[in-house]
Lab assay of single mutants.
Amino acid sequence: MTLTLTVPPGAKVRVRITNENGETTEIEVEPGETVTITLPAGSTVRVEVEVVDPDGRKRTETFTLKP
């Protein structure tokens, strides 16, 4: 399973991925970048995406991906 994120110009994104064992991976994606994350097959993962807009506003979306 893959997750692809494209960050709009001016925004910053931090992604936290937590697996079933509670292990967390965190990455930051710079403005204008596209990143593809390969998620472990057969695992349920929690993905938290934090977006910081150019004006400093933050918003966070959290979702769970199941196999």
Results as ranks from 00 to 15, higher is better:
Leu5Asn: 02
Asn19Met: 12
Ser43Met: 12
Glu61Cys: 15
Asp53Tyr: 15
Leu39Asp: 04
Asp55Arg: 01
Arg14Trp: 11
Ala11Ser: 06
Arg16Pro: 01
Val45Trp: 10
Phe63His: 15
Leu3Asp: 04
Thr6His: 09
Ile27Asn: 12
Val47Thr: 00
Val49Pro: 00
Ala41Arg: 09
Val29Gly: 03
Arg57Asp: 00
Thr2His: 08
Pro9Met: 05
Gly56Asn: 00
Pro9Asn: 05
Glu33Met: 10
Thr64Gly: 00
Lys12Gly: 06
Asp53Gly: 13
Val51Asp: 01
Gly42Pro: 07
Leu5Val: 11
Pro54Glu: 08
Ala11Ile: 01
Glu26Lys: 06
Ile37His: 12
Glu48Asp: 04
Val13His: 00
Met1Arg: 03
Phe63Ile: 15
Lys66His: 13
Thr36Asn: 06
Pro9Gln: 07
Lys58Glu: 00
Lys58Gly: 00
Thr44Ser: 06
Val13Trp: 01
Ile17Ala: 14
Thr18Leu: 07
Asp55Phe: 04
Pro8Phe: 13
Val15Thr: 08
Val45Ala: 06
Pro67His: 14
Glu28Asp: 10
Thr44Cys: 14
Thr64Glu: 15
Glu30Ser: 06
Pro8Glu: 13
Thr2Gln: 05
Val13Met: 04
Leu5His: 02
Pro31Ser: 07
Glu26Phe: 04
Thr4Asp: 07
Pro67Ile: 15
Lys12Thr: 13
Gly22Thr: 12
Val51Trp: 15
Val29Ser: 09
Phe63Thr: 15
Ile27Ala: 12
Glu33Gln: 07
Val15Ser: 02
Ile37Gln: 13
Gly56Ser: 00
Pro67Glu: 04
Glu20Leu: 07
Leu39Val: 04
Thr4Lys: 06
Gly42Gln: 09
Val7His: 06
Thr62Ala: 03
Val52Ile: 09
Val49Cys: 03
Asn21Phe: 07
Val13Glu: 01
Val7Gln: 02
Glu28Pro: 11
Arg57Val: 07
Thr2Val: 07
Val52Pro: 00
Arg59Trp: 15
Thr36Trp: 12
Leu3Thr: 05
Arg16Ile: 04
Thr36Ala: 07
Asn19Cys: 13
Glu20Thr: 05
